[in-house]
Amino acid sequence: MKRKRTEIDVVKPGWFTTIQDLGRYGYQRYGMPVSGAMDRFAAVVGNRLVGNPDGAAVLECTLKGPELFFRDDTRLAVTGADLSPTLDGHDVPLWECLNVRRGGRLRFGMRRVGFRCYLAISGGFDIPVVLGSRSTHCPSRTGGLDGRPLRAGDLLLGGSFDSDVDGDVERLVGRRLPDRLLPRYDRSVMLRVVLDSRRELFQDAAVSTLLRSVYTVAPQSNRMGYRLIGPPLPRADTHHFISEGTVTGTLQVPADGQPILLMVDRQTTGGYPPIAVVISVDLLFAAQLGPGDTVRFVSCSIVEAQALLRTRGYLLDAALPPITVNRRSL
């Protein structure tokens, strides 16, 4: 089968647009952050819609999307936040696979809902794999396009592998994520958390404060983490916390009591005590928050959190089965 190449010009880069996949695993013990798509669900769905395996590279666009010029025909899907995408002036339906013709121009407008949107194209973005992943980690200039966000004038190549479903293009086009699986992003969300079992790290009032207060995402928030502004969570002053591994979704608490929600570019280890961890199925809602948005927390058990993740996996697989392809370059 002839390998399909797609050339895409970056006319405008957008505010902060990076290449991401599902993350760089296996190197956290050397201090290498995981990175990857903030909203993994949106990245996975985008890839499945266009006939890619879940881990193909996608574009993560933040707040203000890029302007892209397609030099070749391809298929694309825009998922995640609604940043008002248009193709040649027509609204692009989100969570749906569509054809784009040679000469097509994709633009984005104002933020309607969510903060990060994903562009998946047929065959994925052809980017060298660094330490097992194509994800961009900007602070260490690793992965993606030379470890940096997109710039005007960049040329993106699509099609890092052949897709077995190429003969079935018509079946893919127009396919969309069923409504019942569409995430309801909001600027004010309730996130479920697993409370840390070490209650001695905090004063008694801290957990109840966390569970009955509203926190606002501060402007100093990025892919590493969100600073949350709200009632302080008093730490136990007797306890000296020794640095340990962190996970995405950790709510860690510095001395001032203002929690920080760790996201995908988080440091692999941390010296601030954790009070709770956002459960995996709710991370996509956290990923779609921007400065000024608000969040509340509710407690959940580990068993329940894992069951929710399995259930969502079954439902997604039933609606959009995962795609396996003959990948030329991993």
């Binding site: 695993y25 190197y27 013990r29 020794i242 640095s243 996970v247 068993v303 894992q306």
Partner: peptide, 21 residues
Amino acid sequence: VDVVPTYRSITVHYDPIQWDL
């Protein structure tokens, strides 16, 4: 998926689809 040794502990990252606690 990841094993992270620190001063006095090891953080083990696992896929909850494949493992229960």
